[in-house]
Simulated assay, not measured.
Amino acid sequence: MSTLPGRRRGPSKGDRRERAILETARALLARKPLADITIDELAAGAEISRSSFYFYFDSKIAVVVALLHDMSGDLGRDSGPWLDGSGPDAESLRAALTALAVLWRDQSRLLAGALAAAPGCPPIAQWRAGLRAAHVQRLAARIERDRAAGLAPAGPGARVLAGLIDDLRAAAFAGAEDPEALVGDLVTVELRMIYGNFGDHHPAG
């Protein structure tokens, strides 16, 4: 079978260098804050010159934005069973929050730095807004389903409530020394925000 015209057989040298810059940034962020990382360090880690760095990224922020987009799938990877389910399912919520807490533990400097920079950095703000909107849409749909089924009480608008929950999570994890230690409390708080005294609700089986 012939190869289609223009089809790459594998990653190009440019692809590999771009990936090397991103991996260097990820490794550096594990050791020190974003503000302390320099272009020279990123270039040296990728074994390219400073001038070559600018062929792939126009700034350090552009590297951060690329890392954040790479991570977007991981941030919501384990939330499906909770967001697509029904009723005060503490175990599904706990699993979703635990996965999120582990990611925050491993990528705390990148995520916390991104949230702090977002108000003054349109590309990061756009990333955060898109991530928030996707979560709010799915969580609001869940809240509306449960209210329609009589599993959750009436309350604030579903999108308003979902937005408050998303903002609460981000603020809690951004300020936590041990994100995993917050999971139990977040499960309780989020379920109470949606279901009130959720222990009194018994979904029909």
Rank of each mutant, 00 (worst) to 15 (best):
A141V: 07
I124V: 13
S51P: 09
L139N: 01
R132E: 10
I61Y: 03
M193R: 14
A158K: 04
A125N: 09
A140K: 04
G10K: 10
R138G: 07
R77P: 02
R17W: 06
G6T: 12
P122H: 11
A25Y: 00
Y56N: 01
P88R: 00
G205Y: 07
A99G: 10
A170R: 08
K32A: 14
A46M: 06
Q137R: 15
A117K: 02
L4N: 09
D78E: 12
D185P: 01
A43V: 02
L28T: 03
V63I: 10
T188L: 15
D36M: 08
A96F: 03
R8E: 11
I143G: 00
D106K: 08
P123D: 07
R159G: 01
R50Q: 11
P119D: 12
A116N: 07
E190Y: 03
M193V: 12
A148Y: 03
V64S: 05
L103F: 09
A99I: 02
A95T: 15
R132Q: 11
Y54L: 09
D74Q: 11
A174P: 03
G175L: 10
A46D: 03
G199F: 10
L75D: 03
G163D: 04
G120P: 04
A44E: 07
L131R: 07
A90V: 06
V102C: 06
P203L: 11
I165M: 13
H201Q: 14
S79A: 14
S12K: 11
H201D: 05
R94M: 07
L110Q: 02
G184V: 03
P33G: 08
A152W: 00
A171E: 10
K60E: 10
L75P: 00
L97G: 02
A174Q: 05
R9W: 10
A134Y: 01
A46K: 00
A112L: 03
